[in-house]
Amino acid sequence: MRFGILQFPGSCDERDAVEAAARVGDAELLWHREGNLGQVDAIIVPGGFSYGDYLRAGAIARFSPAMESVIAFANEGGPVLGICNGFQVLCEAGLLPGALLRNTSLRFRCAQVDIEVVNAETAWTSAASPGETLSIPAKHGEGRFYAPNVEELEANGQVAFRYAPRQNPNGSLNDIAGVCNERGNVVGLMPHPEHAVDALTGSTDGLKLFASAVGALAGR
């Protein structure tokens, strides 16, 4: 199992993502100018501030050569995970529904949050149980999920993660912390599972996402 982790100018969580993925498989960084992704089995679009969040978070990164390949990979059913800024990039690219807006507090929020696994049948959640709570850090200024068709997403099972009651750090609609595409191979979330893989930092719950991708690949 080989994970490819994209790196844009302004990414800052790509090394933690490599470290996290390396606990369940092989992992390598992929520079965003590289259109050929090579032989990877899963792709992670990491957190950070690609292109300085200029214009809108994720708006410019979405057009990098690597993203064209990520879109093709996703359309073939390949597992793709977007974390924080990566989630914003995947929404801008149209691989995931909705958009991420400024936190209602207008503040950058950094906190350990509990998120509930709402859909445990996606490529990145299958190692968790439905309703299971994961303790994962969140750190963002633009994480308020919005989608005009949110009821449709709820009905389709496209809400993958929800903040636990009273832990919504950003004002997201329906406390949504992460969503998936209809097929379930593309998942995005604001909290950072790659920062929750070692007991040293308090929680290893984030490993479930990476282990899920390994399981999804074995089942394909």
Partner: peptide
């Protein structure tokens, strides 16, 4: 395509 996000 770029300057605005028509969704929001």
């Amino acid at each position: 395509k770029l300057l605005a996000n028509p969704l929001i």
